[in-house]
């Protein structure tokens, strides 16, 4: 049986009350499809961090979810300020979040590093002033 599941969620910049909604929907699908538990855990961490990045930094964005027997792909595509220096943004502790966001406990500079740590593959493209696109992929073969 080869089944491809695709979903798309929209994310509004600045709306922290809904941050995590898309990630929880993705988690529900993964559980329903009986994906390996360790893979679900890693996917959820990466998806949530990506979703919060859109809420915290961008004006709007969408999250595309695609899954087949071999892979899970999540594409987080936003319209926003973009990332000036991707290498810097990948460093643990580096953040451009506002103080209001930091007071909530976000913006510790752990988001992108958490995504990289948990995803099997991650690719970032960004155009300053326009937006950022992050793609994460998970292999569904269980890692020993």
């Amino acid at each position: 049986m080869s089944e491809t599941i695709t979903e798309e969620y929209s994310v509004t910049g600045g709306d922290f009350s809904r941050a995590g909604y898309a990630s929880s929907q993705i988690k529900k699908i993964l559980k329903r499809m009986d994906v390996d538990k360790a893979i679900i855990k890693r996917t959820v961490v990466a998806a949530y961090e990506g979703e919060v990045n859109i809420v915290a930094h961008a004006w709007s964005g969408k999250i595309e979810f695609q899954m087949d027997e071999e892979q899970i792909r999540i594409i987080l595509d936003d319209e926003g300020p973009g990332i000036e220096d991707i290498e810097k943004a990948m460093q643990e502790g580096y953040s451009t979040a506002t103080s209001a966001i930091r007071e909530m406990g976000f913006g510790a500079g752990m988001g992108l590093p958490n995504m990289k740590k948990n995803a099997d593959h991650m690719h970032i493209e960004s155009e300053p002033g326009k937006g950022t696109k992050v793609e994460i992929r998970m292999e569904r073969m269980v890692r020993e």
Binding site: V45, Y48, A108, G111, N114
Partner: peptide
């Protein structure tokens, strides 16, 4: 720090924090 919890806490644990949102 929410990303710290996201990255390092595990299922079944109790989370102790001063964040209320």
């Amino acid at each position: 720090l929410l990303s710290d919890v996201m990255g390092n806490a595990d299922e079944g644990q109790v989370w102790i924090t001063l964040q209320t949102h």
